[in-house]
């Protein structure tokens, strides 16, 4: 159903150089509302670079991005966030010294006016954090807990909560289950499935075939910085996808 509508996010001909190294060459990607796209590839295939281009952290050397059919130029992560494009980084991008709530709202803190000065509204941060964590069924002792005190799975949950706290339309996840204990993996995958149901487009980068085949609708493989293969999940198999990762069709 989703393939007939316009894609929510589309990248065309993305190329990225780092000095003399070509990290990406003419890469295309699209994701529809309510769809999960799996991106696979070996280390160094350009997955993370592509995601950083999509999130506005890197500027592409060439190529263009279309969001809801309109071309967008992302100058910073703030631009992509404003569009509703959120990223969950592999290194989690959380500040360990700050509490959960302040991490979720980092950069977009609610404030209250005290005369002419704007002060952080800690009560509102706490209230919104608790409501949001409840909605996602994420259990932590308290929203005031510092992130550095959390387990890997809890941190991942906070990172995902952070990405979805502001009406995200597309959420990009870089190896969302890599650092998790087995029992926590299922929870994160459930979280992804429920995001899809709300009409969010999800892009999952993963090495784990289990993840890809549990939550994704379509899978694309990058090889040495280029599009290598792509198929809907029903038309492929684990063995074939693993072959793509190694550069075999």
């Amino acid at each position: 159903m989703s393939s007939t509508t316009n894609p929510l996010l589309e990248a065309k001909g993305i190329t990225k150089y780092f000095g003399t190294i070509t990290a990406l060459e003419n890469v295309n990607l699209k994701v529809h509302a309510g769809e999960c796209l799996g991106v696979v590839g070996d280390n160094g295939a350009g997955k993370s670079t592509l995601m950083k281009v999509l999130s506005g952290l890197y500027k592409p050397s060439a190529g263009s991005l279309f969001f809801q059919g309109k071309e967008e130029i992302l100058e910073s992560p703030r631009d992509s966030q404003n569009l509703g494009l959120e990223m969950v980084y592999q290194d989690l991008a959380l500040a360990g010294n700050l509490p959960i709530g302040e991490n979720i709202f980092l950069g977009r803190e609610p404030t209250k006016n005290l005369g002419f000065i704007k002060l952080l509204d800690f009560n509102k941060i706490k209230e919104l954090t608790n409501a949001h964590l409840d909605k996602l069924k994420i259990n932590v002792k308290s929203a005031d807990q510092k992130v550095e005190e959390l387990s890997g799975g809890q941190r991942q949950a906070v990172a995902i909560a952070r990405s979805t706290a502001f009406n995200a339309k597309v959420v990009i996840m870089d190896e969302p289950t890599a650092a998790l204990a087995i029992k926590e993996v299922g929870k994160v995958l459930d979280l992804i499935n429920s995001l899809k149901k709300t009409g969010v487009g999800v892009i999952v980068i993963s090495h784990r075939m289990d993840d890809i085949f549990t939550v994704c609708d379509r899978v694309m493989a990058l090889f040495q910085g280029t599009n290598f293969a792509e198929a809907s999940l029903s038309n492929t198999s684990r063995d074939e996808v693993i072959g793509w990762i190694m550069g075999k069709k």
């Binding site: 952290l57 290194d91 991008a93 977009r108």
Partner: peptide
């Protein structure tokens, strides 16, 4: 109690997180 102040702490905690937060 200000955004800028909070961001100063965030930069010290993890500059990449601060950058990724826009």
């Amino acid at each position: 109690h200000s955004k800028t102040g909070k961001w100063i702490y965030a930069i010290g905690g993890n500059p990449n997180a601060a950058r990724a937060s826009g």
